[in-house]
């Protein structure tokens, strides 16, 4: 089991953003998290990523508890969210080089430029990240995921702020993850597109799991729930 969450809950002040969440994701599975704004999708991803501690419940990533072994669990996962966590004043190549070095990977231009080419940033590798569009920042973030070689990828609204070509690119990534046995937990509003890629779907409502089932049915479920 790549990811196992049991009784997961998180309270902010008096408000429980997430409560009683049980979730399991096997290797190579793509699971879609759906729900209205404020239903807890982002909180759940952040809990799994270890950015936030759970108030209740446990998380385990490939059997590792992020509270006990934060670095080991962090190495198993990668997160791409709307926050890019990039350095505006560095170039794409410099940013990639730092990531590679931190991960103990080959960091010469020969190793890194092909990766930049592959995501379509080949010509812009010497430009400052500050000038990048949201889509380009996402592509750069994807390189980091590739470098990290995680067992679990967390995607928070991966299709947002992307044009059609960008969205197709992300679909390709998700496909690639599945084929290589990497699990994906994907939170998205663009349900039609996301549901095509996912094996299962989970609907969150007021921070709790309201429904689990086949990915194709998620859209209908969400409609019904918000009616």
């Amino acid at each position: 089991m790549t990811l196992r969450a049991s009784g997961l809950g998180r309270r902010f002040g008096k408000h429980w953003a997430l409560a009683r969440v049980d979730l399991e994701v096997a290797a190579g599975e793509v699971v879609l998290l759906a729900g209205a704004n404020g239903s807890g999708k982002t909180t759940l991803l952040r809990l799994v990523a270890g950015l936030v501690r759970p108030t209740k419940g446990t998380v385990s990533i490939c059997g590792i508890d992020p509270q006990r072994q934060p670095l080991e669990s962090r190495r198993k996962l990668s997160m791409i969210s709307h926050q890019a966590y990039l350095y505006p004043r560095l170039t794409a190549l410099e940013t990639t080089r730092i990531w590679a070095r931190l991960l103990g990977l080959p960091a010469s231009d020969v190793d890194l430029l092909p990766m930049l080419e592959e995501v379509g940033l080949g010509g812009r590798h010497n430009e400052s990240v500050a000038g990048f569009s949201a889509g380009m920042k996402k592509r750069l973030a994807f390189i980091r995921t590739r470098l990290e070689k995680p067992r679990l990828v967390l995607l928070d609204e991966p299709f947002s702020a992307l044009d059609a070509a960008g969205r197709r690119m992300v679909e390709g990534w998700i496909d690639g993850f599945r084929r290589s046995g990497t699990s994906v937990l994907l939170a998205s509003h663009t349900l039609a597109r996301a549901a095509r890629l996912a094996d299962r779907g989970i609907l969150l409502q007021q921070g709790q799991v309201a429904w689990r089932g086949k990915a194709e049915e998620v859209a209908a479920r969400l409609e019904a729930a918000s009616a």
Binding site: R101, L103, G104, D111, E118, P150, G176, F177
Partner: peptide, 23 residues
């Protein structure tokens, strides 16, 4: 460097270019 399989095993590191030991 494998480009199609994100989950593949880490590439071998060479002393001249690698930073820390592979985790």
């Amino acid at each position: 460097m494998s480009t199609l399989h994100p989950g593949a095993a880490p590439a071998t590191t060479t002393a001249a270019t690698s930073g820390a030991p592979a985790p």
